[in-house]
Amino acid sequence: MSTSASESFALPPHVVSLTSRVDFATTLARLEAAFQSRHITLFAKVDQAKAASDSGTTLRPTVLLLFGNPAAGTPIMAANPHAAVELPLKVVVWQDNAGLVHVDYSDVTQLLTRDYGIDRALFEKLAQIPAMLRSVVTE
């Protein structure tokens, strides 16, 4: 987990925050390339800073990506339809006031086991996502 020296925000225990070694645009491009190379579907890209600007307010650079693989997520939702609220997966890329870029994601494997009673065997592929995200921000 990380926070910049100039800012401190509450971070729930199931959310992981990684600091990228590269700028905002490069971090986003690397994430999208990682999804594509692993046949992960990018369902939506929400530019939250642009939405804020369009509404007359301001927000630091912030983009939310909704992504997943239906072959991996469908068995989870079949096992417990309520788990669909956690899927597709989400990652947010944001830049703090010091210019550091962060990649935040929810470790849904904790939630799926604890809160939805899903057998870990059903989300083996999801367990690979944190390593992929770490590789994107550290390369």
Rank of each mutant, 00 (worst) to 15 (best):
N97I: 02
I40C: 03
T74I: 09
A51N: 15
A52T: 14
E7A: 05
I118M: 04
L42D: 04
F43A: 11
N69D: 02
T57I: 08
T113K: 11
H102I: 07
R60L: 14
A52D: 03
P61T: 05
F35G: 00
E124H: 08
A34S: 10
L66S: 12
L28E: 07
V15P: 05
T41A: 09
T74E: 04
L65T: 12
A51I: 10
A52Q: 04
L11K: 13
D104T: 11
A25D: 14
E7R: 14
S20P: 05
A121D: 08
I40K: 12
L11T: 15
L42E: 05
R30T: 05
L87Y: 11
T58I: 06
T27W: 06
Q110E: 10
V15C: 05
V103M: 01
S20E: 01
D54N: 08
V93N: 05
E124M: 14
Y116I: 00
L42F: 06
L126C: 08
T41K: 15
A33L: 06
I76V: 03
A5R: 12
H39F: 03
I40H: 11
V63I: 00
A25I: 06
D96V: 05
V85K: 10
Y105A: 10
K125V: 11
A78N: 14
I76M: 02
F43P: 14
K45R: 15
V91Y: 03
N80W: 08
L112C: 03
I76E: 03
T26Y: 07
R21W: 01
L31R: 12
A33V: 00
K90Q: 02
I40R: 09
D119Q: 04
F9R: 13
K90E: 06
V63F: 08
E32D: 12
L126D: 01
A44R: 14
A83Y: 09
L31G: 11
S20R: 08
L18N: 12
S8K: 13
V22W: 13
E32S: 09
K50C: 05
S106L: 15
T62N: 13
V101Y: 04
N97R: 15
S106M: 15
L31N: 12
P81R: 12
L64T: 08
Y105D: 05
V85R: 12
G99A: 00
T113I: 02
T27K: 09
T19A: 13
T57W: 10
P75Q: 00
Q36W: 02
H82I: 12
M77L: 03
N97W: 09
P61H: 07
Q48D: 10
A79D: 02
G68N: 09
K90I: 01
L122P: 07
R60V: 07
L59K: 04
A78I: 11
D119A: 10
S20L: 04
L66V: 06
A84N: 04
F123V: 05
D119N: 00
V92Y: 01
P81C: 09
F35Y: 06
D96F: 04
P81G: 00
N97L: 03
G68C: 08
F43C: 09
A78S: 13
P81E: 10
L11V: 13
I76Y: 03
A33R: 08
H82F: 10
S20M: 01
S53T: 13
T74D: 08
Y116N: 01
L31M: 00
T113L: 01
P88Q: 06
S17K: 12
S37Q: 12
A49L: 06
L111D: 08
H14S: 09
A78L: 11
Y105R: 05
H82S: 15
E32Y: 07
